[in-house]
Write a protein that binds this DNA or RNA. Structure first.
Lengths: 123, 123
DNA sequence: ATAGTATATTGACGTGAATCAATATACCCT
DNA sequence: AGGGTATATTGATTCACGTCAATATACTAT
C-alpha cells in the first residue's frame, strides 16, 4: 500500500481528523437500494391503510370494502393494490364481478424481518 | 342508529359479502401520516448510508469524510444531512472550517421503536 | 486585506409518484 | 343480445423530490 507524502494531502489541523479511513458505509448501494425499496412500499398512507385492513382480516377482503374504507377514489385504490401485489405482499382472486385481496403472510413476515435487520444496523 | 332499508343498498350475491363492517383501518390518516414520515426519512440510499456511517462511529464524523464515502456531490450530501437533522436524527457541530455530525442516539432508538410498532400491527 | 478552503444555500432542471376522469374489460342478469 | 356493475387500465395533470452548478457564508492563514 502506497501512502502519499504528507505534503500531498489536504492540510488539516491536528485533532480535526478528516479522511477518516473507517468512515465507510457497511451497506453497498445495491443493499441500500433493496432496503429503500422495502421501506418505500410501506411509506404511503393509502398502502399502509390497505395493509392494515388486510392484515387484520383472516380471509380475503372485497375491493369494494377497501374503497369504502379509504379516502381516495377507485382508480387510486386499484393502483396501490397493484403496487402491493407487484411487491408480493398481497394476492388477489376474482369471484364473479368482485375482486378479493388478502395478505401474503409469509411475504409480509419476510418484509418485516428484513426491515428489522436494516434497523438493527443502526442500533 | 338508522339503517337503510335493504332495497336501498347495492344488491349483492349472498356469500359475496361486501360492505364488510369491520374492514376498517385501525390507523387513522393522521397516524399513517406520522408512520410514513418515519419511513420516508429512512427510505433513501444516501440518507441510509449517512446514518449507517454515523451510527457505527462512536463520535462525530467530518462532512468531508461523509462526502468521500458517498456517490453524490457535496450539495447533495449537505441537503440530506439537513433533512436528517430536521428529523432530529442527527446533530451537528462546527469546529473551525469543518462541520461534524453525529447520531442522536435516543432519537434514532425512538424511531426504531416506532417503526417496530408500525410493523407489529401487520404481524 | 487577500486568498484559499469547507460547508451551506439558492435556483434551476429533470424525473418519477400520486391522483383521478374517462375508458376498457369482464362478468352477471334478463 | 343488451344493459348494468365491479374492477382494471389509460392518459393527463400536478407536484414533490433529488441532484447539482453556481453562489454565498464563514472561517483560516499569510
Amino acid at each position: 500500500m502506497i501512502l502519499p507524502k504528507l505534503e500531498e494531502v489536504a492540510p488539516r489541523r491536528p485533532g480535526e481528523r478528516c479522511c477518516d479511513p473507517d468512515a465507510i458505509p457497511s451497506m453497498s448501494l445495491a443493499e441500500t437500494g433493496l432496503a429503500t425499496a422495502d421501506l418505500e412500499i410501506l411509506a404511503h398512507p393509502v398502502r399502509m391503510q390497505l395493509l392494515d385492513v388486510l392484515a387484520r382480516k383472516e380471509g380475503s377482503v372485497c375491493v369494494c370494502d377497501l374503497e369504502a374504507a379509504l379516502p381516495v377514489k377507485q382508480p387510486t385504490v386499484s393502483h396501490h393494490l397493484k403496487l402491493l401485489r407487484k411487491a408480493g405482499l398481497i394476492q388477489s382472486e376474482r369471484r364473479g364481478l368482485y375482486a378479493y385481496y388478502r395478505v401474503d403472510r409469509p411475504a409480509l413476515d419476510a418484509l418485516r424481518g428484513r426491515i428489522d435487520r436494516y434497523l438493527a444496523k443502526f442500533g
